[in-house]
Every structure is written in structure tokens, then in C-alpha cells.
Amino acid sequence: MFRKISTPVLLLLPAFVVLAAVVLLPLLLSLYSSFTPFRLTRPATLWVWAGFRNYERILSDGVFWAAFVRTIVLLTIALNLEMLLGLGLALLVNKATRGKRILRTIMMFPMMFSPVLVGFQFKFMFNDNVGLVNNALQSLGLTDQAIPWLIDGNLALFAIVVAEVWSSTSVFAILILAGLLAMPQEPVEAAKVDGCTAWQTFRYVTLPFVMPFAYIAMTIRSLDIARAYDIVKIMTDGGPARRTELIWTLVGRTAYSDAQMGLANAMAYVSILLSILFTVYFFRKLAAARTQIGAEW
């Protein structure tokens, strides 16, 4: 039997077995359980088929859709801010005449921190009693009382956005900087000879070239934000009154606090669909940007 199997297949077989055991089987089990009323406290419910009951419940659940919309809002705001700040950092580092390597290294520091550590760091900074943000604002005379950053719902979401942007702007900065370093200088010099201003050169020459790199960063970050959990869990745990509850914090609460694993898995697959939609969108934008560069350059 084994003689009929080619050597490359035999060599790859252990890797396929490990992937099937670690990835494929849990994925299929979670998909199956999303069609059951499975509860952690009642293991026998795993074998009770419920059809699309969990998904129908999700479609009519206001709490889920509130978390869904909140995730979209967080994703939109964070992506745009990270894009703008990352672009600005990349342009500044690219213009530097000395210390580019040091600046690139410093720019990567936020990526080296665990999301859990970032969550604790910003939870302390935005603490209403001993937080650095309130102390700084009061010392500067900008406010005479402590601001409840993590207690007020809107302010808590703002604090989470700040934490996300701080930790991941460097993803955009590094990829866009790679695009700037790879960009040929002849079109830039030709634009200057033709009398283009600095803004026109950036708008019509530099920006179209680096946009494919920005779309790659958007694809990576959209997947990260769509499954955001660690920072939110540490900073607010979805509070106050679920005003910062995102899809994956709701999934975790439903699965482990409420023990409704089947319903939680159904929510997770809806979230995965959201991630796929954003990935397809940004890949299309990436393909369009590459086509534009190929036509113009």
C-alpha cells in the first residue's frame, strides 16, 4: 500500500495529520455544534440537532446586532486613523536624513507588546482616579475634575480606539514605508520638472504607488479588529452596560459565562463571514490599485 504513495506525499503526511487534528477537526466540530443547543453544563445536548434555530435567534437578537454594529464602527474608525497616522509616520521617516534604522526600530515597538499588556497599560492610563491621562489634563488646567473614561460608554469606546490605534499604527507605517523605499524616483523627478507642487506630486504620483501596500495593511488589520477581544476584555470587559461589547467579547460571554456554546459558535461563524467580506473588499481594492499602477507606470 505504502509503495503506491509517492515519497513527497509520505513526507508531508505527518504535517497533514497534525493540521487535521489541530485545525480541521475542531473547525468541523464547532460548525456542527452551531446547529445544536449545546450547553457546557449539559454535554448530552451536543447530539441534539436544532437546525438553524441558533442562527434564527441571532438574527432577532438586538444585543448581537448592537455588538455587530459596534464592531463595524470600531473597525472603520481604527482603520482610517491607523491609515492616516501610518502614512504620516512613513513619510516622516522616509524624509529623515539620519537615523532611519533607529526610527524604523522605534516604530515597531508597539507591535512587540501583547494585546493583554496593551489592555492593562491603557486601563491604567485611563483610570479616573490614578490614570496618567486625567492627571495630565488636571495638571495642565484643561479640566478640574476626573473624567470617567472607562465608565462612560462613549468615552470607553474612545479609549479602546486609542489603544487599538497605538498598538497597530506601526503595521501601516512599516508597509507604507516599504512602498516608499521601493518606489522609483524617476516619476517624482518628472513631476517636479513639469512644475507640480509637493501636494500634487504626493497626490498623483506617490499616493497611488503606496496604496497597494496600504490595502495589504488594511486586510491584515481588518481581520484583527473584526476579532478584537483581548484589549476590550481587559479594559472594559464589554461594559459599562455592554456599551463596548464587540462580537467576540459577546461570543466569549455567551460561551463561557452563559455556557451556551452552540449559540456562541453560531455567532462566531457570523463574525467569520464579516471578516471574509472585508477581506474580499480589500483584495478587490488591492487588485484595482495594482492595475492602476500597471497602467500609469
Rank of each mutant, 00 (worst) to 15 (best):
L25Y: 15
L12R: 02
Q145W: 14
N54R: 00
I174K: 08
A136E: 05
Q260L: 13
L177A: 06
A228P: 15
N135Y: 12
A78R: 03
L180I: 07
F282M: 11
T206E: 08
Q292I: 11
G141I: 06
L137Q: 07
F122R: 01
V63T: 11
M111C: 09
D224H: 12
L13R: 01
I216S: 05
A295T: 09
L223W: 11
L155K: 13
L10V: 01
I176H: 02
A66P: 04
Y269T: 10
A259R: 10
M211R: 09
I5N: 07
A178K: 09
L31Y: 11
A268H: 03
T249L: 10
T254H: 04
I220C: 05
V165K: 02
F202M: 13
S168G: 12
M211F: 11
F2P: 15
E189Q: 14
A182K: 12
A241G: 14
V9Q: 06
A182H: 10
Y281C: 15
L46P: 00
L59I: 08
F278N: 06
V63Y: 06
I174Y: 13
A173W: 08
I5K: 08
Q138W: 00
F113P: 00
R221K: 15
N54Y: 00
I216N: 02
L85M: 13
L46F: 11
L273H: 04
A226H: 09
M83F: 15
G179C: 07
V93Q: 07
L181M: 15
M125G: 02
P37N: 06
D258L: 12
F202D: 05
V171S: 12
G238D: 03
G238H: 02
P43Q: 04
